[in-house]
């Protein structure tokens, strides 16, 4: 019996091993490596001296760390509610039974599959002052203003938020759409007999039924937004004057421009814990959903 189970263990190894090795080296090991790096002076070339918790002390007193962490948080605050509302609105439109349904769904989703490099440069070229597509449209409908979208703090944030919504809302729309289609028709039919209006139905059937999927979308969105980096780097470069620079960009600059991987790993750890807490909340929420 014992011998047999030993043979069974052996048989499973070739199936598990390839995934296990890749997972261990590239997913698990970096967590420990990161801890090690955060305790050292560590340059792009090599490991220097052990500094204990110096990097952590530096982080807590570093205004750039707090500023960029705040910028990332601001991005989360600006995009999350707008994203959920827009996704819901688009899902309701895409759920109308009409010949245009496929057109609606494809159009709302299409930007999501484009590369971040493409959507960023579309944004840059469309938002160019004087000759950009957006400003020339403003001129042609009689608005004489010449907004410099990337040079003003508020406008830069507006640009980033709008571009991000446009780029990623399709994914969330599809999740809402799945939620809408899971609502049993019988609920609507029953309320129709009771003489409920469309608005009543929306408030008392559609919205409450969408709460579970809405919660999933909300948490996924917060989690994803805390990782923001590429579109900001490419659209505003973190400017003007660092006003839109997110934490991951600062981590990148410290590590690769200032040649200080140890400190970059330390700040990555801070980000790691924020994201870890968020994803524990998210997974727990999802487990509740499945019950």
């Amino acid at each position: 019996m014992n011998k047999k189970s030993w043979i069974q263990d052996l048989k499973a190894i070739p199936y598990l091993l390839p995934f296990f090795v890749a997972y261990l080296i590239f997913t698990i090991l970096p967590i420990f490596k990161g801890l090690e790096m955060s305790l050292f002076d560590w340059t792009l070339v090599r490991k220097m001296e052990f500094v204990g918790l110096e990097n952590y002390k530096e982080m807590l007193g570093d205004p750039h760390f707090w500023r960029t962490l705040w910028n990332t948080t601001l991005f989360v605050i600006l995009t999350t509610p707008t994203m959920v509302a827009l996704a819901l609105g688009l899902a309701l439109l895409a759920n109308i039974k009409t010949k245009l349904q496929t057109f609606f769904r494809s159009s709302f989703f299409l930007p999501s599959i484009l590369s971040v490099a493409v959507i960023s440069f579309l944004a840059i070229f469309m938002l160019q002052p004087y000759s950009g597509f957006v400003n020339t449209i403003l001129h042609s409908i009689g608005i004489e203003a010449e907004p410099f979208w990337m040079a003003d703090k508020v406008l830069a944030w507006v640009s980033i938020v709008v571009v991000t919504l446009w780029w990623t809302v399709g994914f969330n729309m599809v999740l809402f759409l799945a939620g809408l289609q899971d609502i049993p028709d019988s609920l609507y039919e029953a309320s129709e007999i009771d003489g409920a209006s469309r608005w009543d139905q929306f408030r008392h059937i559609t919205l409450p039924q969408l709460v579970p999927i809405g919660r999933v979308i909300l948490l996924l969105q917060i989690l994803a937004s805390y990782k923001v980096f590429a579109q900001i780097l490419l659209i505003t470069g973190g400017g003007p004057g660092g006003a839109t620079r997110p934490l991951i960009q600062y981590i990148y600059e410290v590590g690769f421009r200032q040649n200080n991987l140890g400190y970059a790993a330390t700040m990555s750890y801070a980000l790691f814990f924020i994201l870890l807490i968020l994803s524990i909340i998210q997974l727990r929420n999802q487990r509740l959903e499945e019950r």
Partner: peptide
């Protein structure tokens, strides 16, 4: 692994 964000372990 679901809880480990790749963005936060990219330096190591």
């Amino acid at each position: 692994g679901l809880m480990i964000p790749g963005e936060a372990t990219i330096i190591p």
